[in-house]
Each structure stands twice: as structure tokens, then as C-alpha cells.
């Protein structure tokens, strides 16, 4: 099945036209963005049917940059397996679905990661009743694991390196994994630590579950596009960078209008008051203003969706700005 899917992906890529995505999107009048089938804080429809979440905000930022209207997005849900063929076939214009940037995905599958919106790492979650406090103590455990993910491969590496055995229970979506774990059909759920926080928040009694301290991999998660259309890649890349730079410069949705009168040159460049940076991207010069006004800067999106005041309660840690001890860093806007 997996082989077949990657063949699909490669074939689909070979056939699909891979230039002019920006024009296609502009002509169509809305952006097609791939997200998860539902992961708390990252992507989910609200009661009124509007999608919201940390990954969703990246899609919305791109829509705001292109159309000046963050609502001009059509969301397509994708699973760990289906996301790549869906992007390769042109069914979506970009993918923002906690996807790890790896060499083979970047090169072999023919995609281009335009940046990182969340630095993650793979962890383990177990029932506290299991009484294990380190992942090396999980010998012989049944592990729930999502198919088609990097986590599937890391898991095998980790257990082999530590000379311990396990039984994998392959699963398609996060919500199946959650139900299997809660029902006791697997002892361990392993995935990106952010996903574990989301899953734990959903438990009837979160205290019955612990996330082990072991982080066994680097999972830089970011949006990606098809290889070969650099203009389009640039638009998505600088939409994401805008959110990060806005946080660096202290520009947020609440003060963006006053900031137009700022005396800091980079703020003026960012908001399109000076210089023609939007034009270089074939966007309007106030594209960044629209992103910040409608979606907010990186920290606003983080706090709204996954931050300490949400049920996920994730701290900034690695995802703090480089000036605050994290590694979030965007190239200069000039």
C-alpha cells in the first residue's frame, strides 16, 4: 500500500503542471489548503463550520496575503498517508499539516518545505498506571503509531538502537489512535509531542496519562508546496515569515494600524509603507499588513490555538524567538 501510494505521488507529480500556482489561485478566487483530519489546536472546524487552528492560520495568512481576505480558503483534510499524493496531484495548493521536513520528502517526493512553523520532537504517552518513567523501559509494549509518518520510522530506530522489542499497532488517524490508547488496546501512543499534548487534553482524566521525558527525534513541522514553482513557494514562505517577523518587531493585530506611523524602518517596510516588497512577490504591497491585521503575528496565533491558556497548554520552549532563548528565526524583511 505504501509503495503504491508513493508511486501515485511520483506519477501524479510527473503529470501535473507545476508552474503558475499563484495565477491559478488568483483566478480561482480562493486557496486550497490541506490540513489534518482534526488535531486539537492545529486544525478543526468550530461550531459555525469555520476552520481554526495553528496550522489553519498559516493557510489563512497565505489567503490574506493574496486576496486581502483570510476567509478565502478551502480546506481539505488529509491523513498521514494521503497528504502527499493529494499535494502532488494538485488537489491542494499547499499543505499545512504538522508535516516533518525530511530529506526524502523534500527531494525524493518532489516537495519544497518553505519554513518551519513549529519545532517539535517525537515523544511517548502512556497510562501513568504503567509505572514506567523512561521509554527504554517499554520492552514488549504495544505501540499505537500513525502510518505514513516519520514517527513510524523513528520508533523502529529507537527500539532497535536500545535493543528492546515492541509490537506496532498501525493506525490511520489521530482520533483512532486516541481511542485505541484510551481503550487500552495499546500501551503507548507515540507521535509528535505537540500531538501528544493534544491527545492528553482530550482524556476524561488527563492525570491518568503521562508524557515520558524522552524526545527521540527532531520534527521540524512546516508548510510545503510542490517542487518547481518557486514563485509560489516564495509567497507561502514570506507569508509565514511575516508572522514571525511581526512578532520580532512587536507588531500585532491590535497595533498594526498605529504601527504604520512607526519610526522603525523595518516596520514600515513590513507594512508596505515603504519599499515595494509585495510587488516583488506579485502581491499587493500591504500583503503583510493584511496577514497581521486578519490572522495576527506568530505569538498571537500560538497563544490563541495551542499556548498556555488553551487546553493544550504548550509552552513556547524551542518555538520562542531566537531573542528569547528559542530557535524561531526569520530572515530579514528587506
Amino acid at each position: 500500500m505504501k509503495k503504491l501510494l508513493s508511486i501515485f505521488a511520483v506519477l501524479a507529480f510527473a503529470f501535473s503542471a507545476n508552474a503558475g500556482t499563484l495565477d491559478d489561485v488568483k483566478n480561482r478566487g480562493f486557496l486550497k489548503c490541506g490540513v489534518t483530519t482534526g488535531l486539537i489546536g492545529f486544525a478543526a472546524p468550530d461550531d459555525a463550520g469555520n476552520w481554526a487552528g495553528f496550522d489553519v492560520d498559516v493557510c489563512r495568512a497565505v489567503a490574506a496575503a493574496i486576496f486581502g481576505d483570510s476567509s478565502k480558503v478551502e480546506f481539505t483534510t488529509t491523513t498521514g498517508k494521503s497528504r502527499f499524493p493529494t499535494l502532488a496531484s494538485g488537489e491542494i495548493d499547499m499543505l499545512a499539516r504538522n508535516t516533518t521536513w525530511t530529506l526524502s520528502r523534500d527531494v525524493n517526493l518532489g516537495f519544497e518545505f518553505v519554513g518551519v512553523n513549529y519545532y517539535d520532537g517525537q515523544g511517548f504517552m502512556i497510562p501513568s498506571a504503567l509505572g514506567v518513567d523512561d521509554a527504554t523501559g517499554l520492552d514488549g509494549a504495544t505501540v499505537c503509531i500513525q502510518t505514513g509518518t516519520t514517527t513510524e520510522l523513528n520508533l523502529a530506530d529507537f527500539f532497535r538502537a536500545n535493543g528492546i522489542g515492541y509490537e506496532a499497532l498501525p493506525i490511520e488517524t489521530n482520533d483512532e489512535a486516541r481511542e485505541n490508547l484510551f481503550a487500552g488496546r495499546c500501551d503507548v501512543y507515540t507521535t509528535d509531542a505537540s500531538g501528544l499534548s493534544a491527545t492528553r487534553a482530550q482524556a476524561d482524566d488527563p492525570d491518568k496519562w503521562v508524557v515520558l521525558p524522552n524526545i527521540i527525534s527532531k520534527e521540524p513541522l512546516g508548510p510545503l508546496v510542490r517542487h518547481g514553482d518557486h514563485q509560489w513557494g516564495d509567497v507561502v514562505r514570506w507569508s509565514l515569515n511575516t508572522m514571525i517577523i511581526a512578532e520580532e518587531l512587536g507588531v500585532s493585530s491590535s497595533n498594526v494600524d498605529e504601527s504604520k506611523g512607526s519610526n522603525i524602518p523595518e516596520v514600515l517596510r513590513l507594512l508596505g509603507v515603504e519599499g515595494g516588497y509585495g510587488e516583488m512577490l506579485e502581491l499587493s504591497n500591504d500583503f503583510a499588513y493584511n496577514i497581521i491585521k486578519q490572522v495576527g503575528n506568530y505569538s498571537e496565533s500560538f497563544d490563541r490555538n495551542i499556548g498556555p491558556d488553551t487546553p493544550l497548554g504548550i509552552g513556547r520552549n524551542l518555538n520562542a524567538l531566537w531573542t528569547d532563548g528559542g530557535i524561531l528565526y526569520a530572515p530579514p524583511f528587506r
Binding site: 490541506g34 482534526g38 486539537i40 478543526a44 468550530d46 461550531d47 483534510t77 481511542e179 482530550q202
Partner: peptide, 29 residues
């Protein structure tokens, strides 16, 4: 669900992935 259409079950999954309602999976299923 695998190809991105939200049928009855897919809508249920979406509801559970919204922080407003998370954890009520028994009801949804």
C-alpha cells in the same frame, strides 16, 4: 475521510478535534 471528504463520521471527528468539545468521543461515536 482518507481522501478529504467529511462524511457523518468525519464531521464527528472534526467536532472532537475542536477544543470546545474535545473528549466527548463516546457521545459522538
Amino acid at each position: 475521510i482518507i481522501i478529504g471528504l467529511l462524511d457523518l463520521l468525519g464531521i464527528g471527528r472534526g467536532a472532537l478535534a475542536d477544543a470546545t468539545w474535545m473528549g466527548l468521543s463516546n457521545e459522538v461515536y
